[in-house]
Amino acid sequence: MTAERQQFREELRLQAAERFARGEASSLIAKELRVSLRSVQRWRQAWDEGGPGALRSQGPASLPRL
Rank of each mutant, 00 (worst) to 15 (best):
S39V: 01
Q58D: 05
R44Q: 13
R13L: 07
G23V: 09
E49R: 10
A46W: 05
R42Q: 05
A25N: 09
R42Y: 09
R56N: 04
R19T: 09
L66N: 12
G53F: 01
G53I: 03
E24D: 15
E32D: 14
S36E: 04
R9E: 09
R22P: 00
A61L: 13
R19D: 07
R19K: 13
A16L: 05
R44D: 12
G50K: 13
E18L: 12
G51V: 13
L55P: 02
A61H: 10
A3D: 15
R38V: 12
R9Y: 10
T2Y: 01
S57W: 07
Q45S: 14
R34E: 15
G59V: 07
R19M: 14
S39E: 02
S57D: 07
A30K: 08
W47K: 12
R42N: 15
P52F: 02
W47M: 08
A30N: 10
Q6I: 08
P52S: 11
W43E: 00
G59Q: 05
L37A: 10
R22D: 07
Q45C: 08
A3N: 09
K31L: 15
T2H: 12
G53H: 07
R34F: 02
R38P: 02
R5K: 14
L63K: 01
A54V: 03
Q15S: 11
G59D: 04
A3R: 08
R44F: 05
L66E: 12
R44E: 10
R9K: 14
L33Y: 04
A30H: 09
L33H: 10
R65K: 08
A25Q: 03
Q15R: 15
A3I: 07
G50L: 09
D48H: 14
R13F: 06
P64C: 11
S39H: 03
Q45Y: 09
A30E: 10
A17W: 00
E18C: 04
L55E: 03
A54W: 03
L14H: 03
Q41E: 10
F20W: 12
P52L: 02
E49F: 06
E10P: 01
E49I: 07
Q58S: 13
L14P: 00
T2Q: 09
L37K: 08
E24F: 01
R56Y: 01
E18K: 12
A3S: 06
E11A: 14
R19A: 10
F20V: 07
L14E: 01
R9V: 08
R13I: 00
R13Q: 06
R19F: 01
Q41I: 02
A54F: 02
R44M: 05
A25E: 08
L28H: 14
F20L: 14
L55I: 01
E32V: 05
Q58F: 05
S36Y: 03
A17L: 00
V40K: 01
